[in-house]
Design a protein around this nucleic acid. Structure first.
Lengths: 171, 171
DNA sequence: GCTTTAAAGTTCTATTTTAGAACTGTCAAT
DNA sequence: ATTGACAGTTCTAAAATAGAACTTTAAAGC
């Protein structure tokens, strides 16, 4: 499986991974959510090579996660800001941070705390069911193929109840 | 920044990315949450090279996300199952899937639907505040340095207002 | 008994990606 | 006239990945 085919897989996880599933993209997005917007700012705080940074920014813009906006004209200069599509990545970012908070902290404690402006409290993110509001666990969820599920050749589907099918050796 | 230093950054996102921040790890985890457990099963449904699969599985075991358990003795055979630490990745996986459902679907619709066993409904995951229960958005969250924040030079944690510090280019 | 098959890896080379550093072009300030 | 900031681009060396073949242990088929 190559990077460009990933994006076309009948799997929402694979498609999202095609956009943000590499270390640098996620770190760049962290900076974006911390209000960083400029090439130099990303580069110096991440230590990413300029070459890769340019490439990743282009990719994020191409996928509509960031928008490239001129902020001065003399020498044309641009900054990168999150689109709504990009802002919608917030639950992903927060759940990644939360897992790190719970499972990867050292003795000194959390590097960062989050305060909810609405209620004023320090909080953790919790993922709940849109219908009943209960916290979600893997075991409490049943997976069904949706309308966009693969139904072409019998080659590897990724639905929950995949039979034994596939063995991509046969085409 | 190298992969191994990433794990030691004073940032929960970076530390988590050190564990699961590459395309194959995330796809392997998808399979784990879909009840796949064996080397051959991962390999044939993902099309990952055997070499990389072996390496990624080792890494996930090393970080305590998967446990390697023998399921027969004659020729020793092992399978990989999620630990509690691994199961705790569920919100990350689900929010990735959800973003793909919202922003990366084609005309055919979602590849997969999720049903909550507790309430019986098809649902979407929603991330809420642990304190007030309201849905979270990036703009409604204020970030503070925590006890584990970087404290070497002047305060700059990777909080919202990092100056330019650490310009690796000089002085 | 001999060959094939299966699982779970390991080993090998060719190709692609990434790291690290230097270079480019445009303007403002010194 | 020179320096510095910004947003990149270009180059080579080093690292990671793809793709395929090979290994080991033991059961199954002939």
């Amino acid at each position: 499986m190559k990077w460009d085919t990933l994006e076309e897989e009948p799997c929402s996880l694979a498609r999202t991974v095609a956009v943000i599933g590499d270390r640098w993209s996620l770190l760049i997005l962290r900076e974006c959510f911390l209000r960083k917007r400029r090439f130099e700012a990303f580069q110096s705080s991440l230590g990413i090579t300029r070459h890769l940074l340019a490439e990743r920014l282009k990719k994020l813009v191409r996928f509509g996660v960031l928008r490239r906006i001129p902020y001065q004209d003399s020498p044309k200069r641009y900054e990168y800001i999150l689109t709504q599509k990009g802002l919608d990545l917030y639950p992903i970012i927060m759940s990644i941070v939360h897992w790190g908070n719970v499972h990867m902290v050292d003795s000194r404690g959390r590097p960062m705390l989050h305060q909810h402006k609405n209620c004023g409290h320090m909080f953790d993110p919790v993922m709940v069911c849109s219908e009943c509001g209960e916290p979600l666990t893997a075991k409490a969820v049943h997976v069904h193929p949706g309308p966009g599920a693969r139904q072409t050749s019998p080659v590897h589907a990724m639905a929950a109840d995949e039979p034994k099918a596939k063995a991509k050796t046969g085409t």
